[in-house]
Design a protein around this nucleic acid. Structure first.
Lengths: 249, 249
DNA sequence: GAGTGGTCTAGACCACGCA
DNA sequence: GCGTGGTCTAGACCACTCA
């Protein structure tokens, strides 16, 4: 552990909850090898003393790690580090950018803009985003790479009717989420549907799968005020990305 | 609301947490139409007074409903009932039997046993279950119906080497989970992977999809002691079941 | 029986939204 | 500015595991 700093109430520009800070510290310790797969973490009481936080806070941190499939909690026994292989593994209920996930698993992420358009919303898009048909949107088509291998093709639609042109222009350059953050539309929640898809019409370029089999993550992102800010269809190429879900009672 | 009974600490044979009880009561109220889609639930403080529980408990209840995509929480504003259509919608991170989910959505569930075998575990099964190759297992193939329409085909494997024959015999008759519960192997956690699958070899009977497209939920169930108790491959027929994931930061 | 995680409480204060 | 949800605490007691 040996962190100790960085963790403090006081809310000194604290946009990150204490629980998350503890979770990140524990995650780093695990990744660094302080706790080997199969070994036991310190007890919740110990951790709470180490970080000087309440046990409730420690528990929220551990729940986060658990939902990422990183640790396993056994009642009456302890919390144990999971063993996981080298594939890209993402906890499906963690909302984070795909690039971020790829990076954290030790691969080099890259996105490639294939098309970009400012146009009226289709009927489907309008319904999902809760706007009128014909509302102006920015539409993007991107390929997402991990170590130069296509992991997913993503189609994103962002309502832009009332957005200053200087912001509209920035979509397609750099991280979509950082632009959204700047204009105050940072997604905090997404409701996603999962569908299997087979199509030879999805994707492009030399790595386009022959008779492509994809896992479609069909999701609408909402900001903290409940406004729909992005409608995304991300087609994950089967076999290159491991989506994990921890299911509990 | 107007429940009031059933909710009490005291732990009179309470295997169900207070939070879950409150969640169930709220869920029932929503399903009954007490709160229409889009309308606001009472505030957390109000609910905690109504049910005579702490606000923390109310919050765990609301988190459950949120993860099922049933309500939407907006900071500073309130908790609102989501609008969802007539399709079967399951929160992917809730561990519950499929039949249970189907029933709760207002359909009539039915499972049909197609095959059943007691045999040695394959290499793959042994690895996933953490047992030796050749370990005796019960293997079942079942079709799961909602209102007489096939929703999924499920392949379940249960380690049975040391299980009394009288229990082994019961798998395939009635609910798999109730048998597991009786013998003390009730799953409390499952780690699932999601994959798209296309195959004409999955399924049987007149409703077998032509060129079947499925969402495969590939999962190992664990009991509270961390023992692997079931290895399931469930192939959901695309279009008949809506898997929802709430993703949060 | 000692030690671990699971549940619950009452109370405090912060951040946000909305009028 | 009031009411809403968000975070955090200290302490209590229960249920479970394991030696």
């Amino acid at each position: 552990m040996s962190e100790g700093s960085e963790i403090h109430p006081g809310f000194t520009r604290a946009r990150v909850s204490l629980g998350r800070q503890v979770a990140e510290a524990l995650r780093a310790a695990i990744m660094k090898g302080d706790y080997a797969p199969g070994s036991r973490l310190p007890s919740e009481t110990d951790i709470s003393e180490t970080f000087q936080v309440s046990r409730v806070t420690v528990r929220t941190a551990i729940k986060m790690l658990e939902s990422q499939g990183l640790v396993e909690v056994r009642h009456g026994s302890g919390t144990y580090v999971c063993d996981f292989g080298g594939r890209i593994r993402a906890g499906a209920q963690e909302l984070r950018s795909i690039s971020e996930t790829i990076q954290e698993m030790g691969f080099v992420p890259r996105t490639e803009l294939h098309a970009r358009d400012v146009r009226p919303a289709t009927e489907d898009e309008a319904e999902r985003l809760g706007v009128e048909v014909g509302f102006t949107v920015v539409a993007m088509e991107r390929a997402i790479y991990a170590d130069n291998e296509v992991v997913a093709y993503s189609f994103d639609v962002i309502p832009a009717e009332n957005l200053p042109a200087r912001f509209v222009a920035r979509f397609g350059t750099g991280s979509m989420f950082s632009v959204l953050d700047e204009i105050g539309y940072m997604p905090t929640r997404a409701l996603a549907e999962l569908h299997p898809v087979q199509s030879s019409e999805i994707g492009w370029g030399p790595q386009r799968p022959e008779r492509g089999l994809f896992l479609l993550l069909d999701q609408v992102h909402f900001d903290r005020r409940g406004r729909a800010v992005v409608y995304s269809k991300t087609y994950f190429v089967e076999g290159r990305f491991q989506f994990v879900i921890l299911r509990t009672r």
